[in-house]
C-alpha cells in the first residue's frame, strides 16, 4: 500500500484487435483398421470425433468414436484421461444395455488407439425437437401456453424423465446429460429433419458417465438433472416449463428419486453460490 505512484496504464491510442491466430486445421488420421474412405464425420464433440461408417459387414451401420490426442493437453494427462474415459464409457454402455436402458451397443474398442465402435442410432436429438418447438412458438404459430398443452411433447418429456430415472436406478450417472445427448430413435433408422416424437428414447454419449456408489447417488443424480435443466434453459429459454414435466416424471420413476430431487435443490443453490466474488 506504500507505493507512491499509480501503475501507469496510459493508453490514448484507439483499440485495435490482435492479429488472429493461425486457423489451419490439421487432419486427424484415424488408427487402423479405419481409413478415411467410407467415413462420414457426424460431429466434432468436445472430446471425440464421431464418424458414421460400417463395421464387419458393409450394411451394418455403426458409429466410430475417436478420441484424438488433444494437442493442448500434456501427453501423460492426455493418455490417462483418454484411457480412463474410453474404458469407463464402454463398461457403462455394456451395463446399461444389459439392464434394459436403450443405449448404443459396444461393437469394439481400442483404448491405446483411442477408438470405440458403437451400434448406429437413427432418428434425431431432443435438442432438434425443442429447437423446432421453440421456433414455432417464436413465430407465433403456437402460443406458448397452447404449445405446452400439446400432449405429444408433454408425453415425450415424461418419457425422458422416466428414462433418466431408470438409468439412475441401475446405478449409472450420465455425466453430460444435455438435450443433444438424448436421441429419439425412429424404427426406420432414417434421420429426417424432425425426428418422430413417439420414437424410442435412446441415451448417447456416455463419455463422462460413471457408476454411482451408494453414498454419491443423490449427488451424481442431481448433477445430471442440473446439467439437463441448464441445457433446457440455456438453449431454449422458452422451453423451461417443459423441464418441469421431465422432473415430475423423474420423481415418480424410481425409489431413490425423492432424495435426488431434494439434492437437486442444493446443487442449484451451490451452482448459484458462484455469484459471490468479483
Amino acid at each position: 500500500m506504500a507505493h507512491s505512484v499509480a501503475e501507469p496504464v496510459p493508453t490514448i491510442a484507439p483499440l485495435s484487435p490482435p492479429s488472429p491466430p493461425p486457423t489451419d486445421r490439421p487432419l486427424h488420421t484415424l488408427p487402423a483398421p479405419f481409413t478415411t474412405s467410407n467415413l462420414q464425420l457426424l460431429a466434432q464433440g468436445a472430446e471425440a470425433l464421431v464418424y458414421k461408417t460400417t463395421f464387419l459387414t458393409p450394411n451394418t451401420p455403426c458409429v466410430v468414436k475417436y478420441r484424438p490426442p488433444k494437442p493442448y493437453r500434456h501427453p501423460i494427462l492426455d493418455k490417462r484421461l483418454t484411457k480412463a474415459r474410453l474404458l469407463a464409457e464402454a463398461r457403462v454402455l455394456v451395463r446399461a444395455g444389459r439392464e434394459g436402458v436403450s443405449v448404443p451397443r459396444v461393437l469394439g474398442a481400442d483404448w491405446e488407439g483411442g477408438w470405440l465402435v458403437l451400434s448406429w442410432v437413427g432418428g434425431g436429438s431432443v435438442r432438434q425437437v425443442l429447437d423446432g418447438w421453440a421456433e414455432r412458438v417464436k413465430r407465433g404459430e403456437q402460443k406458448a401456453e397452447q404449445a405446452l398443452m400439446d400432449g405429444e411433447i408433454l408425453d415425450l418429456m415424461r418419457r425422458i424423465g422416466r428414462c433418466v430415472g431408470r438409468l439412475h436406478d441401475i446405478g449409472i450417472s450420465h455425466g453430460d446429460l444435455t438435450t443433444s445427448n438424448i436421441m429419439l430413435q425412429s424404427p426406420s433408422q432414417e434421420s429426417g429433419p424432425q425426428p418422430p416424437l413417439g420414437g424410442e428414447i435412446t441415451l448417447i454419449d456416455f463419455g463422462l458417465a460413471s457408476h454411482i456408489t451408494p453414498n454419491s447417488a443423490d449427488e451424481e443424480g442431481a448433477v445430471d438433472l442440473y446439467v439437463l435443466e441448464r441445457a433446457f434453459a440455456a438453449t431454449h429459454p422458452a422451453a423451461e416449463p417443459l423441464f418441469q414435466e421431465v422432473l415430475k416424471a423423474y420423481s415418480e420413476s424410481w425409489k431413490g428419486a425423492k432424495s435426488v430431487m431434494k439434492r437437486l435443490e442444493d446443487v442449484r443453490l451451490r451452482g448459484r453460490k458462484r455469484s459471490m466474488l468479483g
Partner: peptide
Amino acid sequence: QMMGLMARDRGGSVFATDERFCID
C-alpha cells in the same frame, strides 16, 4: 496457448486481451 490449440482444431480462433484490459 492451450485455448488456441483447441480452437484451431475446431476451425476457430481464440481471442485474448493483454493485462491492461484483462485484469480488472
